[in-house]
Amino acid sequence: MNKMILTNASVVTPTEMFKGTVVVGEDGMIEDISQSTSQVKGAIDCEGDFLVPGLVELHTDNLEKYFTPRPGVTWPSRSAVVTHDAQIVASGITTVFDALSLGDVVHGSSRLKNLEDMIGALKLAEDENVHRANHYLHLRCEVSYAGVLELFDALVDHPMVHLVSVMDHSPGQRQFVKEEKYREYYQGKYGFSDEQLVAFIRKQKEASALYSASSRHSIVDRCHLNDIPLASHDDATIAHADEARDNRMTVAEFPTTVEAAKASHQHGLSVLMGAPNIVRGGSHSGNVAAKELAENGVLDILSSDYYPASMMDAAFKLAKLENGYDLPKAIKTVTDTPAKSVGLSDRGAIEVGKRADLAWVKSEGDHPLIRHVWNKGLRVY
């Protein structure tokens, strides 16, 4: 690859934004940054548009929809993985942690049926250099699921595993402190009758009492032995945040209350919320709004969760709200902070010596339009 010069760009670094030039070396690393316009022949004129780091996504369930695009439909694995990857880079994401569930709350779920195929297809695409984004695995461990430890032990040594989260989606706690929201969600999703729903809720509570504590302890210990970053999930209380601190977790995913988010932030965990929460203006589960955490200064990371394009949209929208987040600080929530929280020190910021993972973004009214994306200096979109 020849040296690349991107000039006349509104360069967004972790601390400031300026009109300038970024030079990418033949090794795909950022070689120079200046607050001037280059006149070198062959320099790419960014037309005054934004140049931001490639986004770092820690939690997306997006792959699942390509393996099962409709209930009862299983799509060929290679096509599913490549199409998912294409949507990821088109959203400005250059590093993605594909979040795969170990265990589920409903028997016979397609999540578990597709698990082996999804992991195999991701690994093959990585080995064959098919992917345009960099893919890692995020294992979402449903600790109330009876077989979660067996699934976890089979995958914890997989070379793509770089993040593990522990979660318990049983009713009456965490995401579903309000049991009526649990009833609304699962009855709507699976079409349970009232009688079936009562039996389902009872079964989930029993499973949580039987398995959650011991499974959580075992998974946390194994992650520390393997030096895998850990994330808590749906923390609702200060006690939950204290538990995450005691378990030496680095990320607090989707806290459901201001109190839990503040406590996690004070403990040094990076607080992660859904980018759709910002775009839509609130939580679809009826929990705390991400913008409220931003107003309290405790929103550290945004994740696309179920809608990849939401990350760039949310970062730009966050910078326009009255919350103390200017554009450099807002962009950090989708680049620098998520990268650092999982130990990826070579990306996430436009800085000399870091990977040239970059996105050229044009502001079209209220919408950040992604024009081009580079992964380590190679244009992938």
Rank of each mutant, 00 (worst) to 15 (best):
S212I: 03
H138A: 04
D61R: 00
Y66V: 04
G54S: 08
A213T: 11
V342D: 10
Y381V: 03
S144G: 04
Y186Q: 10
R78E: 10
T15W: 13
L124V: 05
D85W: 06
D235R: 01
V373G: 04
K329C: 04
A294W: 01
E351W: 05
T335V: 07
V73Q: 11
K317A: 14
D194M: 00
L272Y: 07
H138P: 13
L137Y: 03
S101E: 01
A349Q: 05
A356D: 10
D153R: 08
K291M: 13
H217A: 10
H267I: 11
N296P: 04
V342Y: 08
H284W: 05
S363Q: 15
D49C: 09
V96H: 00
A315V: 12
N323M: 02
V156P: 05
M160R: 02
I33A: 00
R379M: 08
D313L: 09
S165D: 14
P368M: 14
S283L: 13
A252P: 06
T37E: 14
E184H: 13
A239G: 10
D300H: 05
E243W: 10
L102M: 12
T21P: 08
L139P: 02
Q204F: 01
A133I: 00
K181G: 09
G365R: 02
P53H: 05
M17G: 11
D194S: 06
T15P: 10
T256F: 03
P159E: 07
A294S: 08
Q173C: 03
K65Q: 13
K123W: 01
L55H: 05
T250P: 09
K19N: 15
D300W: 02
S10Y: 04
V81M: 03
G297S: 12
T13K: 02
Q196G: 09
R355F: 12
D85H: 06
E31G: 07
R202H: 10
T337L: 11
Q39H: 15
L302M: 09
D305G: 14
A252K: 00
A146Q: 14
M273I: 09
Y306C: 11
L378Q: 11
F192A: 04
S91C: 05
E142R: 05
F200M: 01
R347P: 09
L299S: 03
E295S: 12
G297R: 04
A99T: 06
G377F: 13
D168M: 01
P338E: 07
K362C: 10
R248E: 14
S38L: 13
S283M: 14
K376L: 12
N247E: 15
A330D: 07
D246Y: 11
K181Q: 12
A207F: 02
T250W: 04
E180M: 15
L210C: 10
V82L: 15
H84T: 02
I5A: 09
R280F: 07
A315I: 01
D117N: 03
R379S: 06
S38I: 10
S77T: 06
G147E: 14
G353Q: 01
S285V: 15
G274S: 06
D168Y: 00
A121C: 03
G377N: 07
D32M: 08
F50T: 07
E128A: 06
G324V: 02
A209R: 12
K205G: 09
D117V: 02
H107M: 01
T94L: 03
A261T: 04
Q204T: 07
L210W: 05
M312E: 08
L225P: 06
V156M: 14
V161I: 01
R280D: 06
S109V: 02
D194A: 11
V161G: 02
